[in-house]
Structures are given as C-alpha cells and as structure tokens.
C-alpha cells in the first residue's frame, strides 16, 4: 500500500501541474504582445501562414489579370457557408473576390479555420522567438512550431481531397485516406503541444 502513495500523489499532482502549464502558456502568450519585436513576429507569421493555408486549399490564387471586384452568386449565403465543401474540413464558399493580383473564393468557415491555425502558428513562432532571444534559453529550435504547422497546410486539398496524391503520383489507399483526414486535427494538437513545450523554455517574468 505504501508503494502506491507516491503514485497517487503524482496522479493528484497532474491537474495542478496542468493548471500550472496552462497558466504559464497564457502568461507567455499574452506576454509576447507586450514586446514590439514579438508582436511583429506574431503578426507577420500569422498573416503569412493564413495566406499560405488559403493558397494551399486553393481558396486564394495569384492571377495577374485580376482586377478589383466582388460577387456573391450564392442564393442563401448564411446557410450555404455551413455546408461541407469538397475537401476535409472545408466548407462552401459564398463570394468571389478579386484583389489586384489575387482572386479569393471566399469561404467564411475556411477563413476562420485558417485564422485559428494561423494564430496558433503565430503564437508558437513568437514564443519560440522569445525563447531563442532570451539569454537563458537552451535546447530549443526555432523550427518546432513550423514543423507542427505543416500538416494543416496539407490538410485542405483543392477538390476531392487527394489532390496531393495526384501531385505526388501516388495511389490513395485506405490508410492514406485516413491519415489525410486526420491531418488538420493532428496539426492543431501538435501546435498546442508545441506551444506548451516552448512556453516552458521562456522565462515568463522576462516578457
């Protein structure tokens, strides 16, 4: 019985440890907005990632002949925007927007999803930036948040999901389809894990 005591104590300590970790993540994440340099890193990374994500799922594209226009050919946009789209975790677009050299098939939910992931990537990278610029930081690579964000870029697919497989010239088996369908949630989990890990490397009092 006495041998179980440390185990129980450890188990009881988990919620407290988790709360500590969350508090730490929160402090570091909000703290990065107090510094101009980390704010810039966050903003640049978030915007670039969101653009890359929307490009990867082909919601935006480069078109040098595009001008400036806006059209909403969908009959009931509020209902339509919640309908599933052709890719995993993709939703129907409701408007077509031309912005100079960019054309945007605008799906509110795709954009919201992309923005959520982009924010996670932005926080990851900004906290990583703090960690590597703090003198006491060690054992952390600047690329950890970037690696965690890659699955989400693959997750969208243009139409019918397996577009990546076409590009690679490979056959979609059941396993690959399953892996494909889990890329985006896996990416979110990886980004959250990465954030917890990186936050441990930062001195919260220094931000």
């Amino acid at each position: 019985m006495s041998g179980n005591t440390p185990t129980r104590a450890r188990l009881r300590a988990i919620p407290a440890a988790a709360r500590r970790q969350l508090r730490n993540v929160g402090r570091v994440s909000f703290g990065l907005f107090r510094r101009r340099d980390s704010r810039v890193v966050f903003a640049v990374v978030t915007v670039v990632y969101l653009g890359t994500y929307l490009y990867a799922i082909t919601d935006i594209a480069i078109d040098t002949s595009a001008g400036f226009s806006y059209s909403m050919p969908v009959a009931d946009p509020l209902a339509r925007m919640f309908e599933p789209g052709p890719g995993q975790f993709s939703y129907e677009a409701i408007a077509f927007i031309e912005l100079g050299v960019i054309t945007w098939v605008f799906s509110p939910l795709n954009t919201a999803l992309g923005l959520g992931i982009a924010t996670l990537v932005g926080v990851n990278l900004a906290v990583t930036y703090l960690a590597v610029t703090q003198p006491a930081a060690c054992g952390i690579g600047a690329g950890s948040g970037v690696l965690a964000s890659l699955p989400a870029l693959l997750a969208g697919g243009a139409c019918c999901g397996p577009v990546v497989a076409i590009a690679l010239g490979i056959q979609m088996g059941g396993v690959l389809l399953t892996v494909y369908s889990w890329l985006l949630p896996a990416s979110v989990v990886l980004l959250l894990s990465s954030l917890v890990y990186v936050s441990q490397k930062v001195d919260p009092t220094a931000v």
Partner: peptide, 8 residues
Amino acid sequence: GGPPKDGI
C-alpha cells in the same frame, strides 16, 4: 473519394 456526400 475524400469529399463527403454532396461535398461535390
């Protein structure tokens, strides 16, 4: 094939 029912 990837898309859900009526996803296309």
